[in-house]
């Protein structure tokens, strides 16, 4: 086990940030902490890194209890959302910083890391002379240089242009696999979390509300919050209970009469916004290859009972 968090709690003044969070991250696993701002995900990361002390609970990294240890003494490394590159040091010296503190510095080792993140030959530059994507890779190389068993990433892609994000995410995943490092990534972007992680932990109000592989969490959200947050699921209220119903599970040709309000082309599918006769709004995904109803058309909708996922 790379990281084990037990019943962690933290308050800031009167405001609870974390309320009894438990989490396990296996060796070489990529776990995302997904939630809105204020959900406690960044606090969890800062507690693990040692920048804040928990009010209750335990943190174990590689089986060692971290209680009372300052960030310097913890085996994990952190990659900051702002990258926090040292502006007065060259790219080479930024990557060398941790190695020098540990007495492991060699110029060749730094160059190796720069090459691994695709920045060979950039060592003499200052961070301000690099693009956002290049700075992100320097931050990654700097955090990984001492080969920590566990890397904590705080919104590593948030500062990048949308166009760069997908490619950089794939790069992140490649480096994680190549180095065998456990990654714990904080993000508010569900697509990013679904695409990159082995498992996703969803946080709401300082608690973990669901944890599991991306496909499982996506297919069977445990709560209304998860269903809404993971995007686009319809929430149905039936007989006093709530159910999630994914747009791609709804078929045209059922027994519920409805009308198409709007439709949006999403590449591989059309997303129809429909209004049923009883006033319910439903989002329906229709494959792009087939026949697609136009806006204003009357349709009949249906779904198998198994498509309804009960929500807590």
């Amino acid at each position: 086990m790379s990281l084990k968090v037990e019943a962690l709690a933290k308050r800031f003044g009167d405001v609870p940030a974390l309320e009894g969070v438990s989490l396990e991250v296996g060796r070489g696993e990529f776990v995302s902490l997904l939630g809105r701002s204020g959900s406690g995900k960044s606090t969890l990361l800062r507690l693990v890194a040692g920048f804040e002390a928990p009010d209750a609970g335990r943190i174990l990294i590689e089986g060692r209890d971290m209680a009372g240890l300052p960030p310097q003494a913890r085996p994990c490394a952190m990659m900051f959302q702002s990258y926090a590159l040292f502006p007065h040091l060259s790219v080479h010296e930024n990557v060398a910083y941790g190695l020098r503190r540990a007495g492991q510095y060699s110029a060749a080792r730094v160059e190796e890391w720069l090459a691994l993140v695709g920045l060979a030959g950039f060592g003499a530059r200052r961070p301000a002379q690099l693009s956002g994507g290049q700075q992100q890779r320097v931050a990654l190389a700097r955090a990984l240089a001492r080969k920590p068993p566990l890397l904590l990433l705080d919104e590593p892609l948030a500062a990048l242009d949308a166009g760069l994000r997908a490619a950089t995410g794939a790069e992140l995943r490649r480096l994680q696999r190549e180095t065998g490092t456990s990654f714990v990534m904080v993000t508010h972007d569900q697509a990013e979390a679904l695409a990159l992680s082995d498992r996703i932990a969803l946080l709401e109000g300082g608690r973990v509300v669901q944890i599991g592989p991306p496909d499982a969490v996506h297919a069977r959200p445990a709560t209304r919050f998860v269903a809404e947050f993971l995007g686009a699921a319809n929430i149905l209220e039936e007989a006093g209970a709530s159910f999630a119903l994914r747009p791609e599970q709804i078929q045209l040709g059922g027994d519920i009469p409805a009308r198409v309000l709007t439709r949006q082309f999403r590449g591989e599918a059309w997303m129809l916004e429909c209004e049923a006769a009883d006033g319910r709004r439903l989002r329906v995904s229709v494959p792009a290859q087939g026949e697609v109803p136009a806006e204003g058309d009357a349709v009949a909708l249906g779904w198998p009972a198994s498509a309804l996922v009960p929500l807590a």
């Binding site: 890194a49 040692g50 920048f51 960030p71 310097q72 490394a77 900051f80 702002s82 926090a84 001492r146």
Partner: peptide, 17 residues
């Protein structure tokens, strides 16, 4: 930017360093 000092601490630098 306090994050710079957090980063240095995370990379193993003592307070004096």
């Amino acid at each position: 930017d306090r994050a710079l000092e957090d980063a240095a601490a995370d990379l193993g630098a003592s307070r004096l360093t």
